[in-house]
Amino acid sequence: MEKFKKRPVTAIKNIGMIFTGDVDEPLIEGPATILMEDGQITAIQKGNIPFNGPTIDAKGMTVCPGFIDSHSHPVFGDFTPRQSQIGFVENGLHGGVTSMISAGEVHLPGRPEDPSGAKALAILAHKSFERFRPSGVKVYGGALILEKGLCEEDFREVSEQGVWLVAEIGLGSVSDIMETKQMVQWARKCGMKVLMHVGGTSALGSLRFTTDDVLAINPDVACHLNSAPTSFPPDEGKRIIEKTDSAIEIVYCGNFLTAFEIAKFMRNSLLLHRLIIGSDAPSGVGVIPLAIWRMVTYMSAMCGIPAEIAICCATGNTQRVFGLRHGKVKEGMPADIQIIDLPSGSHGIDAKSAIESGNIPGIAMVIIDGEIKVNKSLNTPPALRSIE
């Protein structure tokens, strides 16, 4: 396995199945071959095509996109002060997460709550993670926390410095709904994506907004509809689904009954293209390297959602909502890929059947931008087959 670490990957052959991450075309039956060049997927072809360059033999295993954690709370680097843990991003990589989106660097000790400090934190986090990818993971840091006193010029200033996220509304001091609406308008004029806290108050004292407040803001993402960590009643969540066009997020660090009701409702309403999955970690619940896989298997097994569609909620759906370049196994996109299989000891015949029975698949390999980052996951059960 060690020989793959610095070896350029140009082809994956003998693929048994591809979960594409595209909700409109989520599954490609194998055998199939993926060709990569300069970190991009250049071709996806049926069958095993002749190829003379460096090749990975998937041995009939399944390929799926690397996960995008839609809701994380990093600070700087691969350390979280929330649980005093080093390496939480690397551990997430071993859970198939190849990118993370910050919902706000709220866990910084001594976090400033004035406009200048809020701007400085967002800019610094954004530029820091632009220059440093922990273990190769793409961390989209630098989400502006809304604090009293921010003006339109402040939003232009941070936007010009590359900041494109508004941290989940409710983390900062702005509580008046009219003041919030004004700031959201300024943010949207700058092309920023707006996230909003939905649910009860968190351990760190986030503000509580009502369902009507969420409807008034119509955020790009209605964050953790199943938590915060205390969720709204499912009927209130359904109102938000029906009366906004927001992306609907469910997270691991939340209420699993509400997650069940929300996912089932969206399945029955043919709205799964709007559903995305995050961890909401690090948090009081902890650091959970397998959070996204746990939610994918939960949704598939408990809510009757096919594995290939559940995976879209952690990949292509999130890519579309946030306007990212990656998130699907598709020609022309970055080669951010997991190779997965039936875990040893599971019933079923492949990763799809394992997921749909509630078992986390074994991760045999994780690739980011065409480079192997994980040869064998340290966190999932072992895959039935292995790459040698």
Score class of each variant (00 low, 15 high):
I241G: 02
E242V: 04
D245I: 03
S246E: 06
A247W: 05
A247E: 07
E249C: 11
E249Q: 12
V251Y: 02
G254S: 00
F256Q: 11
F256N: 07
L257M: 11
L257N: 13
T258P: 08
F260Q: 04
F260E: 10
K264D: 10
N268H: 01
S269D: 11
S269R: 13
L270P: 10
L272Q: 05
I276S: 02
I277L: 14
G278N: 04
D280H: 03
A281Q: 00
A281D: 13
A281H: 09
S283W: 05
G286N: 06
P289Q: 10
L290M: 14
A291T: 03
I292Y: 05
I292H: 12
I292W: 10
W293A: 08
R294P: 10
V296L: 14
T297I: 12
Y298R: 13
S300T: 07
A301Y: 06
A301M: 12
A301V: 04
M302D: 02
M302N: 09
A307H: 10
I311R: 05
I311W: 12
C313I: 08
C313L: 08
A314V: 10
G316C: 06
G316D: 14
T318S: 14
R320V: 03
R325I: 06
H326R: 15
K328G: 10
V329E: 00
V329G: 05
G332V: 04
M333F: 12
P334A: 14
A335C: 11
D336E: 06
I339K: 06
I340W: 07
D341I: 10
S344N: 00
G345K: 02
H347T: 14
